[in-house]
Design a protein around this nucleic acid. Structure first.
Lengths: 195, 195
DNA sequence: ACCTGAACACCGTTCAAGT
DNA sequence: ACCTGAACACCGTTCAAGT
């Protein structure tokens, strides 16, 4: 309570990322301030610079955690049934995750994050992407889908779910009179795409 | 050159939006500062508040102009041939426009703009959306495409082009090894979708 | 090695005061 | 009616100085 306790954090880096995660959830990528993160961790505004090169670096770390969470969610999509149906379920899962963590999602794809080609971030994003890629390859080799270029298919599906998610988060779908829930819209689009 | 000329703008509002347009093009939605816009227009930092309620209000004005430009580009897509082919061409046009004006595009869909439910912005966005909607309806009534809910189809196509465009702008496609140019990817996706 | 305190340059926004 | 100047609260970042 009093400031006579000098903060001797065992792991300030961890405390800062935790605070950053919470702050992003509360105020979004907008209104996110490094100073506020430091304040919440109980340290001076200069302290974070001992652990992160930059505000962008801290945001990139947050984004990395986001991609890992998203990957875990996608991996948890049950197998079984038609491989095409699984792709539809994965699309639903992707959009649902994005809408459940809108600010998180915006940080992950915000231009703030990937300035310094943050290695871990790129890897985490690739890992999440690979889940989608594998599901497509599975559909291809099971013969239920004609796949010559998995990457191209993955690009198509990713565009669909990312586009649907971001338009939904920005309320653009509603503004233009699209009443279909985002998750259903993505599922319908993917279904048509794989037909 | 000297500051003894007191600026007696006939249309400061216009000068500010012009400066804002240029600044967005130079520095992107990031690094965009109201103070800098005022500086470029040759007025004090407080002057813009006589013409815009907010920084967000000025950005919303910029976004509005963007949607009008995009709409014009989409309307210029030639008719003729299969109506499905026209939808593919419109998709190409959309993605090309976005990649030609990436910062502009990010402002249009950035969360900064649509805080105050800016009326003109919403209308401009709707107008652009309607071009897509009309093209879909045309394909429906010509019988080349089975359309029961044009809005749902429009939502699908919009998700595809918006998703492709934003992933391309953020370099996410390249980072994940998708070598197909964004414009081609969108065209292929839409083609598969309408088949 | 890690953190503080003070400093710097920069914002967005408000408001009295000028013309 | 429109703009300036000064002010306020807030940033991100740097750096000498403390422990």
């Amino acid at each position: 309570m009093s400031s006579r306790h000098r903060y001797h954090h065992g792991d300030l880096r961890r405390a800062l990322t935790d605070a950053a995660l919470a702050l992003v959830g509360e105020r979004g990528p907008k209104g996110f301030s490094l100073t506020e993160v430091a304040r919440r961790a109980g340290v001076s505004a200069a302290a974070p610079y001992r652990h992160f090169t930059d505000k962008a670096d801290l945001l990139a770390t947050v984004a990395t955690l986001g991609f890992r969470q998203l990957r875990a969610a996608l991996e948890a999509v049950p197998e079984g049934g038609d491989e095409r149906e699984r792709l539809v379920r994965m699309g639903r899962c992707y959009v649902r995750w994005a809408l459940d963590h809108p600010d998180f999602y915006l940080v992950m794809f915000g231009s703030d994050s990937k300035q310094p080609e943050h290695t871990e971030l790129v890897r985490a994003a690739e890992d999440a992407f690979r889940v989608l890629l594998d599901a497509i390859s599975a559909a291809g080799s099971s013969g239920v889908l004609h796949v010559e270029d998995p990457h191209r298919w993955a690009g198509s599906l990713w565009s669909v779910v990312h586009g649907t998610a971001t338009l939904a988060i920005g309320r653009d779908l509603q503004h233009t009179g699209i009443t279909t829930p985002a998750e259903d819209l993505a599922a319908l689009t993917i279904g048509a795409l794989l037909r």
